[in-house]
């Protein structure tokens, strides 16, 4: 089997200090994206456990897999979950969910939970689309912009580049910063053409790091152009898989001249976390 450079390791995390049996509400949010799927379990208003897995060939299995991974080291059974909200690209096809909510609303809610009520602008860089979201102090969406056609600037585009240069995708960001001088960005926003441009640059004698730097900065520039359509209001934060690529994020922040609020524990679970917060709200509302 050949190396798959786009692969990253799936993982799960469990809160060691919390006892779910004592919680009044136990709910989950599942985000089935185009590339990765996450599940978050919320015990009362605290994260109890979460997972981040690769999306498989169909949404129901991907959702089951993500939830299974999150629950693996816990003694929670699926029937213990009192309410489940599904979100993401595959949200309408999640068998265990009680309700589907769009990823835009969920990302805003999740970023608001992790980053606090001062978050106003969220950039979600997902596997196959880019979203710019404005929200109010409660995490309610006030404006959004979705770029869902072109792979440029998305995780999928980054995978194509990682495969081409045979660089593990998790190393792309750091390598792109490891250059003596920032090279000019690649001229094509289209991934297909950027790919042939990259081959040309390698033949010209550019190092892989330089090509990655040129690609990351083109990607950052494109994202900034997109964000300018809705404007940036502070505080600003970035969610989604590409938020972990420091080569792209540092260039975006430099061009925008803003800081981003770091999201703990994990910027990639914002959608699933937001879905779980919605789930808790809906559960409490139904009890009244």
């Amino acid at each position: 089997m050949t190396t798959e450079y786009f692969r990253w390791t799936e993982y799960a995390w469990k809160n060691p200090d919390k006892d779910w049996q004592k919680a009044d509400t136990l709910v989950a949010g599942i985000d089935v994206g185009s590339v990765s799927s996450q599940a978050v379990v919320l015990a009362d208003d605290e994260i109890y456990c979460y997972s981040n897995a690769r999306t498989g060939s169909n949404s129901p299995d991907s959702a089951k897999n993500a939830l299974g991974m999150a629950l693996k080291d816990t003694d929670i059974k699926q029937e213990n979950l009192q309410f489940v909200v599904g979100t993401g690209y595959g949200r309408v096809n999640i068998p265990m969910s009680n309700k589907a909510i769009t990823e835009i609303a969920c990302h805003a809610r999740g970023a608001n939970y992790m980053g606090g009520p001062t978050i106003r602008t969220i950039l979600d860089m997902g596997g196959q689309d880019l979203k710019g979201i404005h929200c109010d102090e409660r995490g309610k969406v006030t404006q959004f912009l979705m770029n869902d056609k072109c792979a440029a600037g998305t995780g999928r585009g980054m995978e194509v580049m990682a495969e081409l240069l045979q660089v593990p995708i998790v190393d792309v960001g750091q390598m792109s910063l490891d250059v003596e001088e920032e090279p000019p960005p690649v001229s094509s926003t289209c991934v297909i053409f950027a790919k042939s441009e990259a081959i040309g640059l390698l033949r010209k004698g550019w190092t892989k790091n330089m090509v990655l730097a040129a690609y990351c900065s083109a990607m950052a520039h494109r994202v900034v152009g997109l964000l300018e359509r809705i404007g940036i209001e502070k505080d600003f934060t970035i969610t989604g898989g590409i938020s972990k690529n420091i080569g792209v994020t540092s260039r975006i922040l430099k061009e925008l001249k803003v800081d981003s609020v770091p999201l703990k524990p994990d910027p990639q679970i914002a959608g699933a976390l937001g879905a779980s917060v919605f789930a808790r709200d809906l559960l409490l509302k139904s009890r009244k």
């Binding site: 006030t142 959004f144 912009l145 770029n147 056609k149 072109c150 809705i230």
Partner: peptide, 10 residues
Amino acid sequence: YIANYGYTDG
């Protein structure tokens, strides 16, 4: 609440 549907490409 402003919704922008669409995309930017090359």
